[in-house]
Every structure is written in structure tokens, then in C-alpha cells.
Simulated assay, not measured.
Amino acid sequence: MRRYLAPLVVGILGCAVLIQLGLWQLDRRDWKEGLLAEIVEGINAPPVPLPDQIDPSMKYLPVMVSGTTTGAEIDVLSHTREQGAGYQIVSRFITDDGRAILVDRGFVPQQMRRVERPPVRLQITGNLHWPQDASASTPAPNLDENIWFARDVEQMAATLDTLPVLVVASFVQGDNQGARPIPVAVEGIPNNHLSYAIQWFLIAATWAVMTLALIWRIRQRKY
């Protein structure tokens, strides 16, 4: 019996730790789902006028803003399921109270990228946003062609000489010049905790099978 004791203890302890990690991931999944629900509720809340003081803690705040585009814009490479490749148009926007901000007006298909979009007055309902689109493999923007591969609020603001404030439009009154708004949504926020939990449970099952196999081999040994 002593021959079985060490592998049995290791097997039980290993399975207990792995199962606990899986249960922890399930708890994390529940926490993330609650957080996403809060974000969705915030995104869909009644919009308010653009605050006087704005900072990233206001991410997703629904706002209303009126003003005029200047014709200056940044074209961010994008795509939609319906229209394929294209660009998100981020325009320099002067609010009625004189502030220069960024407005993500939405998506245009590739053939409309070079269509002229002169200054136009718009009333926009949308959300404040500080997207984190870039990854370590994202190329730097092609400033000569005005093609960007990710939205970077600080860098876009410096390029268009605006405050580091981005409003992502969900509804536009006025001539949006062919751009179709893509409202802020939670689909891009990862919630992979269930798959992580399944992985831990599978590892625990594998650990248990290996433990039983080891005990069986020990039993087959001759004294």
C-alpha cells in the first residue's frame, strides 16, 4: 500500500489545484459578464452634453455634440462584414463652444476613401472612447498616404491639432458624407474565461488519468 501513497497524494493534490483554477476562471467569467453588462448599460444611457473637462475615466460616456467638421481627417483601415474593406473616417471637429475634438464618423467603403468631404455642420450622438486597437504587430501609420492601421487618440489628436478627445458617432444629423456610423459596442472586449476554465478541467482530467495509469503500472510490478 505504501507504493501507492506518494503518487496518490500527488495526483489528488494536483487535481484539486487544477480544478480550483478552473472554478476560479468560472468566477472570473461571471465577473466579466457583470462588467460587460455595466458597460452596455452605460453605453446605452441617455446622452449628455459634452463635459467641460474630459478624461479617459469617462470612457463610453454617451454624449451629444454639435459643430462643424473642418475637412481634415484621418482614414483608419477597417472592414465590415457587409461591405468588406474600407476606412473609418476620423474627422477634426470644431464644437459650437470652440473646442477642436476628434469624431469617428463611421465607415466608408474603399472606393469612397478619396471622395472629397468638405466642412459640414453636424449634430452627433455618440460615446467618448479611448480605443486600444493597436497591438505589438500593428504597423505605424502611413502619414504620406494618410492611412492608419489603428486608432490612437493621442497620436491622432497631435496629427489633427485637437484635444485628445474622441467621440464615436452612433447617430448623425446632417450630411455625414457617406460615412455609416459604427457605434461603440462590447463585442471587441474579450471574455475567454470559460475556455480557460475548460482547459484547466481537461488538464485536471488528464492528471487524474495519468495518476491512475501510474498506480496501475506500480501494481503490475513484481515484488
Rank of each mutant, 00 (worst) to 15 (best):
4 Y>Q: 14
7 P>S: 05
7 P>N: 04
8 L>M: 08
10 V>G: 05
11 G>M: 13
11 G>R: 13
15 C>G: 11
15 C>N: 12
17 V>I: 13
18 L>G: 03
21 L>K: 05
22 G>W: 06
22 G>T: 04
26 L>E: 09
26 L>G: 07
28 R>T: 14
34 G>Q: 07
37 A>L: 12
37 A>Q: 13
38 E>A: 06
40 V>K: 13
41 E>Y: 05
44 N>I: 03
44 N>F: 00
46 P>K: 12
51 P>T: 12
52 D>M: 03
54 I>R: 02
56 P>Q: 00
57 S>Q: 05
63 V>C: 02
63 V>Y: 00
64 M>W: 00
65 V>W: 01
65 V>S: 00
66 S>D: 07
67 G>N: 05
69 T>Q: 08
69 T>V: 05
69 T>N: 09
72 A>F: 10
73 E>L: 01
73 E>M: 00
76 V>L: 07
76 V>D: 06
76 V>M: 10
77 L>D: 12
79 H>C: 05
80 T>Q: 06
82 E>Y: 10
82 E>D: 14
83 Q>R: 07
84 G>C: 02
89 I>D: 09
91 S>A: 09
96 D>W: 14
97 D>N: 11
98 G>D: 00
99 R>C: 09
100 A>L: 03
102 L>P: 01
102 L>Y: 01
103 V>L: 03
103 V>A: 02
104 D>P: 02
104 D>N: 04
105 R>N: 03
106 G>T: 06
106 G>L: 11
107 F>L: 01
108 V>A: 13
110 Q>M: 09
111 Q>S: 11
116 E>V: 03
117 R>W: 07
117 R>Y: 10
118 P>C: 05
118 P>M: 06
118 P>N: 10
119 P>C: 02
120 V>N: 11
121 R>G: 08
122 L>S: 06
123 Q>C: 10
123 Q>R: 15
129 H>P: 06
129 H>N: 12
129 H>W: 08
133 D>W: 04
133 D>P: 07
136 A>W: 15
139 P>Y: 13
139 P>G: 11
140 A>I: 02
144 D>L: 10
144 D>Q: 13
145 E>K: 15
146 N>I: 15
146 N>M: 10
148 W>P: 08
157 A>S: 09
158 A>V: 06
159 T>G: 01
160 L>F: 12
165 V>R: 00
165 V>I: 03
166 L>Y: 01
168 V>I: 05
169 A>T: 09
172 V>H: 14
174 G>A: 07
174 G>P: 11
174 G>Q: 08
175 D>K: 04
176 N>Q: 00
177 Q>T: 02
179 A>I: 00
181 P>F: 07
184 V>W: 01
184 V>T: 13
185 A>M: 13
186 V>C: 15
190 P>A: 07
191 N>R: 08
193 H>C: 07
196 Y>I: 15
197 A>S: 15
197 A>W: 12
201 F>S: 04
204 A>F: 13
206 T>Q: 07
210 M>F: 14
213 A>H: 14
217 R>N: 10
219 R>C: 00
221 R>D: 13
